[in-house]
Design a binder for these strands. Structure first.
Lengths: 247, 247
DNA sequence: AAAATAGTGTCTATGAGACACTATAGT
DNA sequence: ACTATAGTGTCTCATAGACACTATTTT
């Protein structure tokens, strides 16, 4: 009997189910920049547990589905969005993190321009855009605070920690990966882009320095038009140039 | 009836088990630097599936256990090591990644000085230290290649991809987090440290530049002794200074 | 003395912050 | 003409690579 048949027979008889298994969910820090500040989409929990509290959009991963698939499904169902930039953040598996029982959450962050996000949110009213305050002087494992007009919003489960980690991750990757462009409309001015960077970084940056870096990166290409109608000199419009900067 | 009682009653009756759940495992890229090169600990699979192939040490997460707990347990059982630096890498949840069925793997990387690792491996002989080749010019999702004296070692499941990601993660964090010290003995020379950096980076660095950076970082403190017995001028010994560089 | 390794001096290139300056639109 | 915003010139400072040099030990 050869090894391949042997393995095939083994697999047919194999039963993973002998051991207890956790539920696996995805939770998504769906981020955008609005009014010059970082915001996250939050859904109000309709049922128990933690009814009435606000949570990151999420859901259980279904059989035959990859976690990335689940993220796409959750975003589509809860916000109507497709083709959103998403990246894995971290996995939270503390056995006590969810009062319903053993739930391992794979956390993702997603970035989408405000306008697209707002368009999706008009349909559902159990979902809001809340401003995210990242406590500064943040080392690691810093919890974010979500704020709406009504004041601070209490988050469910460990979602404040996830949100904080997501904000810090985005901040840390900002200069190394072209993720800020995921938050921009198709055409934007360098000033717009700088405001997005500043919102994500939580601090101001020098104008000239910023322009040099962006233009030198080659990630941006002028469209050849300018944005008029403002009350001063019109700014050149740019678009994100996805080309991998070929040699 | 108040909200708290309501929620308590709900939780008592709640059954997560209505939905199918995956098994959740941890896989550990246990890394060290030996002979001036990155190495990983690999265990030979005793049973099916993929019997005879080499895999990262790993195991299923048990009920009541956090993934970090599971990592600690696996390291203790398979290598005898405790107090090892570990950090989460990423979670791999593709439904087809394991032929046994639906297994979500939370991948970690762990760093340990060679001497400690070798001491642990002497007890078990189904575990080896294999050199890790990270294909250069690596963008992302680069698979590593494990090499032993006998030549290239075929890895089980998606472990080559995990190992590649781990190597790149360590490389990327090297200058931003004091992780290289996790690979050093208690006392070391700056030359030793530089060789470790070079092994992880996969390239040489300038001696003077390296010394300036390390000494300026304040992460290192001279012990006040030197290492003699070499065939030239003895080098000053340093130790890792974990103090958070107080103001 | 020669070899080998530890450790330093110093030049240059690069890149980012600071900030004053010029340019061009609307009113 | 005035104001507001876009865009540039240029100085300084910090950091890292290059590389030659000095220092100290073993043989």
């Amino acid at each position: 009997m050869n090894e391949v048949d042997d393995e095939a027979r083994f697999l047919a008889a194999y039963d993973l189910g002998a051991y207890p298994r956790p539920s696996v969910a995805v939770d998504i820090a769906l981020l955008t920049v609005a009014d010059g500040a970082l915001h996250a989409a939050l859904v109000q929990r309709a049922g128990h547990p933690q009814r009435g509290r606000w949570a990151l959009p999420g859901g259980f991963v279904r059989p035959g589905e990859s976690p990335e698939d689940a993220v796409g499904r959750v975003l589509r169902v809860k916000t109507g969005l497709t083709d959103v930039y998403t990246a894995q953040l971290a996995t939270f598996g503390d056995p006590d993190r969810d009062p319903r029982g053993w739930v391992v959450a794979i956390a993702y962050y997603a970035l989408v321009p405000v306008d697209r996000l707002r368009a999706g949110l008009t349909t559902a009213d159990d979902i809001v855009l809340a401003r995210v305050l990242v406590p500064d002087g943040t080392p690691l494992a810093a919890s974010a605070v979500a704020v709406a007009e009504s004041g601070e919003i209490p988050l469910a489960f460990d979602h404040a920690a996830i949100l904080g980690r997501a904000a810090l991750r985005v901040r840390g990757r900002l200069w190394y990966a072209p993720i800020a462009f995921e938050l921009m409309p198709d055409e934007f001015t360098l000033r717009d882009l700088q405001l997005t960077y500043e919102a994500l970084l939580g601090r101001e940056t020098d104008k000239n320095s910023f322009r040099r870096r962006i233009l030198a990166s080659g990630l941006v290409a002028p469209v050849g038009r300018r944005r008029a109608g403002m009350r001063a000199r019109p700014a050149e419009l740019y678009r994100f140039d996805r080309r991998p900067a070929d040699a």
